[in-house]
């Protein structure tokens, strides 16, 4: 029994491996980019807009507002990263309704990659906002003694991010696979619906946590100003 789509390998040459995770990620990326390009091809700035534009605007504005609510002053600077995190994870998770589809988020490699991205984004945005010194100072806040704890926290939260998403998605897929062998008729549908909900919630949690970490690193965020 395969626990991760990483194990489905299409092509391998030494270190290079082309597995199901990468292929599915490409597919999801393709779907997202094509959909976005199609909808934004004919954007209207008037009062009457198309249904798809309305949906995308709601999504983008929703993400923007969430980022702002968490405490980041200029959400437009962060929406590229945080929004993409949410959209990619939620799309990957929602597509489990397709038969034989295995979400790339069910791979620890993908969740690790995303967590590493967050891990790198936090100092990136922190330094961009407060400078290198300012960012580094945040590690010795409130006192110097907190430095090791802050460093541990940085690593563990990244690990937690990766494992949380992977665990949830993998467990969901695994449960459905097990249930299919036990009660193949109706119960897996219920579990799949639950899986959809879990997928959306996990995407939300991942993005929100990433935003919180970034906001904590950015000193000019609202809570810090208070």
């Amino acid at each position: 029994m395969k626990l991760s789509p990483d194990e489905t390998i299409f092509w391998q040459h030494g270190f290079f491996t082309l597995n199901l995770t990468i292929v599915t990620t490409w597919a999801v990326m393709l779907v997202l980019v094509i959909a976005a390009a199609l909808v934004t091809r004919n954007l209207k700035t008037g009062i009457r807009i198309s249904r798809w534009q309305s949906i995308l605007e709601m999504l983008v504005v929703g993400i923007n507002n969430q980022i702002e609510d968490i405490g980041l002053k200029n959400p437009k600077d962060y929406i590229g990263f945080i929004g993409t995190l949410f959209i990619f994870i939620v799309t990957s998770n929602i597509l489990i309704i397709l038969p034989w589809y295995e979400p790339p988020t069910g791979s620890l490699s993908t969740t690790t990659a995303l967590a590493v991205c967050v891990f790198m984004a936090v100092p990136f945005f922190g330094i961009a906002n407060t400078g290198l010194l300012g960012y580094l100072k945040s590690y010795i806040q409130p006192t110097f003694i907190m430095l090791p704890f802050n460093l541990i926290s940085e690593i563990t939260r990244t690990l937690a991010l990766a494992v949380r998403l992977f665990g949830n998605m993998m467990s969901g897929g695994l449960i459905i696979a097990i249930l299919l062998s036990i009660t193949p008729l109706l119960f897996p549908i219920v579990m799949q619906s639950l899986g959809l909900l879990t997928g959306v919630v996990q995407a939300y949690i991942f993005s929100i946590l990433a935003t919180v970490y970034i906001a904590a690193a950015v000193h000019d965020s609202k809570p810090m100003n208070k």
Binding site: I22, T25, W26, L32, A36, L43, T45, S109
Partner: peptide
């Protein structure tokens, strides 16, 4: 799979760029 991790990081960064180009910027501009 560390190759997959690296590939996914690259994929994700590329996706960020693509969505910025095709989704966020035009939508926010509109």
């Amino acid at each position: 799979n560390w190759f997959t991790v690296i590939a996914q990081i690259i994929n994700f960064i590329f996706l960020v760029w693509l969505l910025k180009r095709f989704l966020y910027k035009p939508i926010l501009k509109a």
